[in-house]
Nucleic acid binder design. Structure first.
Lengths: 185, 185
DNA sequence: CTAGATACGGAACACTGTTCCGTTTTGCAA
DNA sequence: TTGCAAAACGGAACAGTGTTCCGTATCTAG
């Protein structure tokens, strides 16, 4: 791979990340290309579809989120670590306005993302969940995948009128998680 | 209002409902106009914005859903009626692929829909919820608005790979609703 | 330094939502 | 019944998307 290619690709990803944060994932391709200082042709050379660019930006962020799980697990009791990570994940989704929405849009280009979720986020949550279950602090009939999807959907829109609604609903979901378990209430 | 106007408006709404059910709310305006047998100009005469048409179709369905609440309340115990209606509402949202997603998109044209929700769905849920709370079967610190939004978000995408996920997550939310209440476990 | 492969730019294309206005239809009044 | 404004219709035209294409510019191996 040519040296300038890698550099330009990185420039594109950084610009895209900023534009997505500012204008949401629906921002025009031309705006991203302009921000990066390239023509749209260059952008499409690296990312054949607009959604490929979105997916690439998303991947980076996913890794960062997954990496916080072991940290939380080391510093908190089982259920608390689980609850904290769920809120951390919720915040991550909420910050990327529209990214989760795009992910669940059914667009074929996002087909590889669930795989990345499986690879990074699901194991991260799985450990926290299993630990809490073993400690008798969480019920055992809930799948990590379901939880990840549920949280993403609860937080994928912003709803400025109801600040904190996402957090409240995730907290409610969390309480459902310990309903009827050994040490639950 | 001219006789043909009302008739044509009804034709448009019916066609739109069918197209939305078939192709989702992202279906091109031209497709809807064609299905109804009109030009796009006619469609835009009745609905200045594409989103106005979506909103109009949505309204009809909302009313039907709200009307089931009293029926359920009459035929079931408090918490069961509440849980059943939540699933009924979840099914309604899931059936209208993309409608809820559009609703939460922040588009200014949907500004009136929350009002209609307040007017029809929130009171419907409020009664069921209050009845369950009075019976000591549900906690009292949850707002109907939050619940409606949460359920909509949990069910607004289809996710064919995980059938029944929406129902499971709504059920989990429902369990959270009775966590820590008087008669709750 | 040069040649050939690689990457870039941006005009052009296809397909959106939306606007506009000449033409057609309707309902009321004479 | 007939005339005629007012209202509604059709669809071409406009603006803004994502995407493609290819002539030009750049890089790097030898």
């Amino acid at each position: 791979m040519r040296a300038d290619t890698k550099r330009n690709l990185d420039t594109l990803l950084t610009a895209a990340k900023e534009v997505f944060a500012t204008s949401g994932v629906d921002a025009p391709v031309r705006e991203i290309a302009k921000k990066a200082g390239f023509g749209v042709g260059t952008l499409y050379r690296h990312f054949p579809q607009r959604s490929d660019l979105i997916a690439a930006v998303f991947r980076r962020e996913v890794d960062a989120c997954a990496d916080t799980a072991p940290v939380l697990a080391a510093e908190h009791p089982p259920f608390e670590a689980l609850a904290l990570w769920m809120q951390r994940y919720a915040g991550f989704i909420a910050a990327k306005r529209g990214l989760a929405s795009a992910l669940h849009s059914g667009d074929a280009a996002y087909a590889s993302l669930p795989g990345h979720f499986d690879k990074r986020l699901r194991p991260a949550l799985q450990v926290l969940l299993d630990t809490a279950i073993d400690a008798g602090e969480a019920r055992s009939d809930v799948e990590p995948d379901d939880l990840l999807n549920a949280i993403a959907r609860l937080c994928m829109t912003t709803n400025d009128k109801n600040p904190g609604q996402g957090e409240r609903m995730v907290a409610l979901l969390t309480d459902g998680l310990r309903y009827g378990c050994a040490s639950g209430r």
